[in-house]
Design a protein around this nucleic acid. Structure first.
Lengths: 141, 141
DNA sequence: CTGCTAACGTTTGTATACAAACGATCAGAA
DNA sequence: TTCTGATCGTTTGTATACAAACGTTAGCAG
């Protein structure tokens, strides 16, 4: 009996459990996703496909990424040839992003992989539990 | 109508929602926790209090942190004077960690803050929803 | 005792993630 | 038109997070 630590158990706290869930998700992600994309890169790319060409800041907002974070993500996607970067002629502040025409064909594969990953992540839950979980999780975002 | 992107919506996927939930949690965390601790530092410290003195690797395992991660976390806690680092005389490989006697009095405050943070994070849910959510989330860890 | 394997910790490299400070540009008000 | 505030993007600094390669030490089998 080193410490009583009252009734608070770290292993039962939301924050800690969320962290563990993310760890498991990332691990599954890595096994399934093509092109060695990270979850963040995947999110940016899929959102860019969903939204169509847009500015770097806007993509960051739509994927909940900091300006500094989205910059790095875009740079790495650009190096992989998955994102095209052009300056907006109508607004010199803006950097316009788009998926090169030659790469649009990979988008369906990404979406398929995304679905598989979500299914795998939720697989410890029954179908109705999955629905409940997603509904409640949405409220915590 | 730029892209159809089938039925897959990024904003409805577990991984993305988990990331958002963590973001919100971290933000709440920062507002409440004392001593400017990060969620990770908090976890290590509370677990060390819960467990009592133990080796660096063991603390890492018990808090689901990589060896490289726990090293940095411990180093920052040490700089703050919240963790004491000693080499194990019985096993020269081991680095023993403990909370300095002079700091043990802060532990109850940490646990109180932790409770508050968990409550705030879960506050968008009703009491029964919170119970359900934690039960399901546990299964995904 | 020797040698093998496992465990412990360190280091390097890459990738988020966010705060804060900065310069450039735009758009609207005075 | 000029000023001013807002937006866009960059850069720096700090803190996770994990893979991989490494050297050291323990413990056990032979």
């Amino acid at each position: 009996m080193e410490e009583a630590t009252s009734g608070y158990k770290l292993d039962q706290q939301v924050g800690y459990l969320l962290r563990l869930a993310i760890q498991r998700h990332s691990s599954l992600f890595q096994e399934v996703v093509p092109l060695g994309l990270t979850p963040t890169q995947f999110a940016a790319l899929v959102k860019l496909a969903e939204r169509g060409a847009c500015s770097q800041n806007e993509l960051g907002r739509r994927t909940a990424m900091d300006v500094a974070t989205i910059k790095g993500v875009v740079e790495r996607l650009r190096k992989k040839g998955l994102v095209e970067v052009n300056s907006d002629p109508n607004d010199k502040r803006r950097t316009m992003l788009s998926i090169p025409r030659s790469q649009t064909k990979i988008v369906p594969d990404l979406l398929d992989a995304g679905e598989t990953i979500s299914k795998l992540t939720l697989s410890p839950l029954s179908a109705s539990e999955q629905k409940t979980f997603l509904r409640l999780l949405s409220k915590l975002s």
